[in-house]
């Protein structure tokens, strides 16, 4: 007699596991990360390696300490580490990078209950911690394509843990910093093709865009979020630029800073973004508006990180406002 197999719903399974999607996000991030290594050299490579390594170690430690579900093989810790590393300046001391990874995984992810439970994007929590704790080291920029970038490390990289980093002989400024503090604009083509100073993984906007578009086409991220972010930033800055030429135009806003990484890879984090269609659009537009508000009227030149963190906090509220009505339910 054949055994009768009894199973609860759902009976249809997708091939797409968490690990499958996570590793695809990693591959999609790689072009931009490799460009960062190519333009900033050994220091950028070591920051990325340290961030990913520390994130994996921390995740392994917390997962076993708190008996959490999930493991390193699902790639979520690798993404957190990689995203954190890509949003750090190349000259950041490696001990700060490791501390940022520890905070990202510990405070950003496991304090909320582990994989799939976090309210805020873990990589951005780590970055916000570093930005608030070490503002000097986090705003020290290195010009790209230094001639000795593959022969020697930047002066700050190998600082003794907890010690003050040494200053680099050569320093640069990001296009947004130049615009805010020196009123100098940059060429749009330089912004998109990664010819400027900035965080390791954010300079080559075109490569980030390509990776994100690939994921969107494979339906591994919700295309509405980056479109809403980019669209609202483009429209708001376009209008502002028409009214007052001191404000940057839409293309500059899209290509500069961490906007592409934020819009395609951080705002779209499946855990921290909304699920209802209406909330998704609102979420994206809110991020776009906050980015413009911080960049135009804030004290800091860049605002993508805070914009996404604030928008993350509004997700439960947005979802509540946009609950679809059940069929036959009360209007």
């Amino acid at each position: 007699m054949k055994a009768l197999l009894l199973k609860g719903a759902p009976h249809l399974n997708s091939e797409r596991t968490t690990a499958y999607i996570m590793w695809h996000v990693c591959w999609a991030l790689l072009p931009a990360a490799l460009w960062g290594i190519w333009s900033f050299g050994l220091s950028a490579l070591s920051v990325l390696v340290v961030c990913v390594g520390a994130a994996c170690l921390a995740d392994f430690g917390f997962t076993s300490r708190f008996h959490r579900l999930g493991s390193l093989s699902d790639g979520s810790a690798v993404i957190t580490g990689l995203l954190l590393g890509m949003t750090l300046p190349p000259s950041v001391p490696l001990w700060m990078a490791a501390l940022g990874s520890l905070v990202a995984i510990g405070l950003g992810k496991h304090a909320f209950g582990g994989l799939g439970q976090n309210l805020f994007n873990p990589a951005l929590v780590g970055r916000a911690f570093l930005q608030a704790a070490f503002p000097a080291a986090m705003t020290r920029w290195t010009p790209p394509f230094l001639s000795d970038r593959f022969q020697s490390f930047l002066a700050g990289s190998w600082t003794i843990p907890f010690a003050r980093p040494q200053l680099d002989a050569i320093s640069g400024a990001t296009p947004l910093g130049l615009l805010k503090f020196d009123h100098m604009s940059s060429h749009i083509s330089d912004l998109f093709l990664g010819q400027t100073a900035g965080c390791i993984g954010e300079t080559a906007s075109v490569l980030v865009l390509t990776g994100g578009a690939y994921l969107a086409l494979r339906r591994m991220l919700d295309w509405r979020i980056p479109i809403a972010v980019m669209g609202s930033v483009f429209v708001i800055s376009g209008v502002a630029n028409q009214l007052n030429a001191n404000y940057p135009d839409g293309l500059f806003m899209l290509g500069s800073g961490g906007l592409m990484v934020g819009a395609w890879f951080m705002a779209t984090d499946m855990v921290t973004s909304p699920v209802t269609t209406g909330a998704i659009w609102l979420f994206g537009v809110l991020i776009g508006f906050l980015i413009c508000a911080i960049r135009f009227w804030g004290g800091l030149p860049e605002g993508v990180m805070y914009a996404i963190l604030i928008a993350n906090a509004t997700v439960p509220l947005l979802e509540r406002f946009t609950q679809p009505k059940a069929f036959g339910g009360q209007p």
Binding site: F129, A132, A133, F134, P135, I160, F162, A163, R164, P165
Partner: peptide, 8 residues
Amino acid sequence: HFEPWVLM
């Protein structure tokens, strides 16, 4: 040589 954690 200690780098203060301004956040704290």
